[in-house]
Simulated assay, not measured.
Amino acid sequence: MDILETDAYDRRQRRNMSCALFLSLLPFFVASAVYFYLWTPDSPASIMSAGVKSAPTLLLALVVLSWNGAHSVLGVAGGLLFSAVGDCCLVWKELFLYGMGAFAVAHLLYSITFLTSRYATYSSSSLNRFLYLILFVAAVGFYVYMFPFLQKAPNSEVIIPAVGVYMLLIILMGSLAIKTRHAATLLGSLIFMASDMALALQIFKVMPHMEHGNTIVMVTYYLAQLLIAVGDVKAVENKDDFSKWKRS
């Protein structure tokens, strides 16, 4: 098989994989649509609302498990499962800290995954270091801006350090996503940060109530998780392409 035939075969394989992946993601799209159809601003906290909210994330975890195997429980699939736990906790305001803890574990699992050999790794460049610096400065600036509002929280003595640790973990996740240079993974991580910032601004009453505030948070959240999941499924494919480029 010559180079042209090999290239054509690889393109067919990628097309087939993309089609199969899209079909496996259909339940996620349906579950997301169901959530937005059923959710209303005055929806009471209940087991049903928690289940509907966490269903899209659980379905993404199943997709990653089906493509990457049981070992992904200690990676992105596990992160998605912890995210689903966080989704359920955030339905009840009194469980906010538990939800934040679940998402912190998810970010840690994502970070560990981005360091594994499944992702093609690149040497750190000046551009990467510049992006790391931007992330860090933006996060510190946001935390400083939020600090007066965190002090007003009922359990501020716990909230203030907890939010600080959480922000460090999500910055770590975003920095390692940059290092992979994988578009879906990087975009997913950055959108996740934007979603969390939008949520924090509303939870800690930094801004007045927004009519579509929850919609903004959940659309960006589901999109972020989708991109991270797709990035993980395609990580091996991209690594193989990187290996071929190095051998050529």
Rank of each mutant, 00 (worst) to 15 (best):
I160T: 08
P161L: 10
I178K: 01
R181W: 01
I203V: 15
K152W: 01
L168F: 06
P148R: 05
S156L: 01
L190E: 10
M207T: 15
R129F: 11
F192N: 00
M218I: 08
N214F: 09
K205V: 07
A198R: 02
T215H: 00
G174C: 11
M193Q: 14
P208M: 02
V217A: 03
L199N: 04
V217G: 01
G213R: 12
A184N: 11
Q202H: 10
L127A: 11
K179D: 09
M173Q: 12
F130S: 15
M146S: 15
A200K: 09
A139P: 05
D196T: 06
M146T: 13
M146F: 13
E211T: 14
L150R: 11
I178D: 10
A198T: 06
L187E: 05
T220W: 01
L186V: 09
I216S: 06
V206R: 05
A138S: 14
L172G: 04
M210E: 07
G141P: 06
T185D: 06
R181L: 05
E211A: 13
Y143P: 07
I134V: 15
I216T: 03
P154A: 10
F136K: 10
S156A: 15
F136P: 02
F142P: 00
Y145Q: 14
N214E: 14
A184W: 02
V219L: 15
L131V: 08
P148T: 10
